[in-house]
Amino acid sequence: MYVNYETFEDADRHAHALSGWDQRYDQVGEGVFRSTVKQVSAGGVQVFQESANVRVVQRGQLPPGRATFGLALSGGAPFSFQGVKVDQSALIFSDGAEEFLLHTPPHMSLLGIAVDTDLLESLADVQGFDFPRDAHAQQVLSIPAAAGARVGRRIVEAVEAALARPLEHVGPDAERRFANTVTESILELLMFHVPDREDRLTHACRSEIVQRSHELVLSRPEQPVSVMDLCVALRVSRRTIQNSFQSVTQMNPVAYLRAVRLAQVRRLLIATSQQEVPVREAAMRWGFSNLGHFASDYKSHFGELPSQTLRAR
C-alpha cells in the first residue's frame, strides 16, 4: 500500500506528485498557490483527495488500463470537465489513456479514483451488476447529490484512516478491504445508470439471505463482513442483498451487520468482568479496531457507553 500526504505552493509540483498521472496544472487564478494532496494506492485502486485555493486548469492523459472517476467535494463554483459542468450531483467517468481537460474553481476539493478495469468489471460481475460499458462515453454522469455526498464521505474516511494508521493497512487483507470499500462505493453511484432488474425472490428467500448473512458474521468475529463479502459468499448481487435486508429487517445491510457485532460485544461484556475481558479486547474480538468509533456506535445503539454496561462480578 502506498500512502502519502503533501502540501504545495506550486501547481506543477502538485500535479507531478500524483503517482502514475501524466498531467500539468496551470494556475489561472490570482494569489499565492496553496494546495494539499492525500493519496492511497492499494489492491488495484488509487485514490487521491486534492484541494487548492485558486482556480487551476488541469490537462493531460488519464492512466492507461484504468477506469477513472472524479467526485467534487466542494468548490467556490462548479467544476468543468471536457466542457461539461460538474457539481456534487455529477460523477466524472472516463476510460484509461484519454486526454482530459478539467477546470477547477477556487477553494476546491476533489476526489480522484482510478480502478483497474479488470477489477472493476470483475467486482461488478460478482455483484450481478450489469457494468455500463458505454457510460464513460458520457464522461459526466448525473447522480443524486445526497448519494454523491454520502459516497464522498465514505471514501474520504477510508483515506483518512489509512493516513492516520498506515501500519493497520499493511498486507493483502487490508489492501483488499480498502479497494473493496472504494470500488463498492463507485459501483453504488454507477447503479443509478443501470436499469432495474425484476426481483422475483419470495419473502422466505430474502429471509434466508438475511439469516445466512447473520450466521456469516458470527462465524468471522474478528473480520467485519462487507456487502461484497456477502455477495461472494451467497452468490447473489448487491441489489439482492440490499432488497432482502430492507424487506426483512427494514435496515440496510451495513447497519444490520454492525448491530449484530455490537450485540455480541455487549453479551461478552455482561458475561465477563473488566479484569477478565477489558472493553478494548471485547471490541477487538468482534472486529471493532477503532475504539472511539466503537464507543460512539455502542452508545448510539444501546443508550450507554460500553464502560457503563453492568459487568459480571
Rank of each mutant, 00 (worst) to 15 (best):
M284Y: 09
A271D: 09
Q46T: 14
L218W: 05
L201T: 12
L234Y: 04
L218K: 12
L120H: 04
V32A: 15
I209H: 10
Q211H: 11
V232Q: 07
D87S: 15
L120Q: 10
C205H: 14
G292C: 01
S74N: 13
C231D: 04
L310F: 07
D12C: 04
L305P: 00
D199Q: 09
Q308T: 03
Q82A: 15
Y25K: 13
A97L: 01
I270N: 04
L110W: 15
V126Q: 10
S94W: 00
F294C: 04
H169S: 07
P78M: 11
T272D: 03
H301D: 01
A295W: 00
D10T: 06
K38G: 04
S237M: 03
V182F: 02
R313Q: 12
G303M: 03
A11E: 12
S74Q: 15
P132W: 08
Q211I: 02
I209N: 01
L141M: 05
D199K: 06
R24H: 14
A295F: 00
T272C: 08
L163Q: 08
R197I: 04
N243V: 07
A174R: 07
G171L: 02
F288C: 01
A67G: 09
F93A: 13
L120P: 06
R239H: 09
D10I: 03
M251I: 00
R206K: 15
A259H: 12
L218P: 04
L111Y: 07
S35A: 15
K299L: 02
L189S: 02
V265N: 08
Q49H: 15
P278R: 01
F131K: 02
L120Y: 10
E98V: 02
M191V: 03
A158G: 10
Q23V: 12
L71M: 14
V159P: 04
H293Y: 06
V232Y: 01
H193D: 07
R150G: 09
A149S: 11
T7P: 01
S185I: 06
S142W: 09
S89R: 10
E184I: 00
A17I: 01
H136T: 08
T117E: 15
P224M: 02
Q46L: 13
T309V: 13
S51I: 00
Q274I: 04
V28H: 10
V265M: 09
V156N: 13
G20I: 11
A161T: 07
C231A: 14
P172S: 06
R313D: 12
